[in-house]
Design a protein around this nucleic acid. Structure first.
Lengths: 239, 239
DNA sequence: CAGTTGACGATTGTTAACAATCTCTGTCAA
DNA sequence: TTGACAGAGATTGTTAACAATCGTCAACTG
């Protein structure tokens, strides 16, 4: 430890020098999910290099991956900016979720044998704990990730990846258009959906989920706008 | 023309030097969709550089993007290989498609006003034309892309992207496990699905699509395997 | 004073050389 | 004959310097 005086970072794979690109991607993903990174925020290469202590190559690879996931937008010769969904994209995201999630929860409630219920019960426990401790950013992130966990419970990695992308995008949308306190989902709706799944009641689960998604969408004000941030080190450096 | 003697390549953006990474991605995507690039085929950087006439940087960016789409797999210090789905992944892909596509065609049949029917009718015409001319690779690609076009008809870019990824993966799977002649979908099933959509008959459209997907999946032999290729220039160089 | 033009600084894109790793081949010994 | 080992060659990963582009700001002109 004493040989590395001022390096508190811990990477996923740190044989030669610093964290790898997946670590950077995860950090930025997490910051977006917790709505600490606002849309339009500029992610300059130099800034990220010193924040993560890596060369430009790693940063550029991470940015390319993030842009392929739609989390950031790469503008030629201008840099990388956190994606800023417009009204149309917001509608598309919710339309896509309305298409996928109802059959998804139906399937979860119908095939109790094939799915990983522990993943879901554990997640609900985490949500409750975060709410108890009033950890705002944690609550926001877990609230979105519940839906990703629904997908993960199927054990199907393609469904998981699709949901993750849609949920991330939703987080940006809620950050942009969300009205004050509805940044996170209402307290018990997730838990009720899980209960319906556990009761093998596809109709109820689907109905609860649809009204839950409608609830989120209704809480948006398509006129509101947030301002971009600038203190990247503080945002991305924290755990 | 005469100033460029031996350069027949035409790039999407060729101001400084050669095609950009999206062009390379599209070429490889197309080759995979036409089953000219078999799973496990090695895509070496040097080979791609001379094939497309670009520097390593462009190629590496293209490979990273392709790997993020699951089309290829990057092995550390070993290179890039065309993805080789196993039995589990094959099942996941079909499960995901069974989850998404039925509600998708339902929606297409229900909301005739919001969707782009011309896209679909045009695609069916292309399929027929290719079949008439017996252009095997074209038939295979269009046969897969019909399902992508279904998604595009919604005008929702998230749904389109998800379907594109699933269809590409399906192409690899069919190439690996497909039994001889069922590489492409049966001639008229696509056209029948389109007719059901045009008739605003969600139930029929869904039923036809489900049996169509089952048809494809039943045509797979999970034991068969194909061999990797080696003549990249010939495969990727052609139009 | 308004608008335009030019140069400077900052940031991104590209290239080429270097380092690290892996594969293949040939040799040697059991 | 088979196995392990070592070295050469080839391929990928990384770095740093260079080139190109963009935004800003000051000076200039009408």
């Amino acid at each position: 430890m004493s040989s590395k005086p001022q390096q508190s970072r811990q990477a996923t794979s740190d044989p030669t020098g610093g964290p790898d690109e997946n670590f950077i991607v995860e950090r930025i993903y997490k910051a977006v999910m917790e709505q600490r990174l606002a849309p339009k925020t500029k992610l300059s290469e130099a800034r990220l290099c010193e924040t993560f202590g890596v060369g430009r190559m790693r940063v550029r690879r991470a940015l390319l991956l993030l842009s392929s996931q739609g989390i950031i937008e790469l503008q030629s010769n201008r840099g990388a900016y956190v994606a800023c969904p417009d009204k149309t994209e917001a509608n598309d995201v919710f339309a896509a979720r309305m298409l996928i999630e109802p059959p998804l929860v139906r399937q979860l409630a119908q095939n109790p044998g094939d799915i990983d219920l522990a993943l879901l019960t554990n997640h609900i426990a985490l949500e409750d704990a975060a709410r108890g401790k009033k950890e705002r950013t944690e609550i926001i992130r877990l609230s979105g990730e519940f839906h990703t966990t629904l997908a993960q419970a199927t054990g199907n990695k393609f469904i998981s990846r699709m949901m993750r992308e849609l949920v991330t995008r939703t987080s940006l949308i809620v950050g942009l258009f969300g009205t004050s306190e509805n940044a996170s989902c209402p307290d018990d709706e997730h838990s009720n959906i899980l209960k319906a799944i556990q009761s093998h009641d596809p109709d109820l689960a689907e109905k609860l989920l649809i009204s839950h998604l409608n609830h989120i969408q209704r809480g948006l004000d398509m006129e509101a706008r947030q301002e971009p941030q600038d203190d990247l080190a503080a945002i991305l450096g924290s755990d």
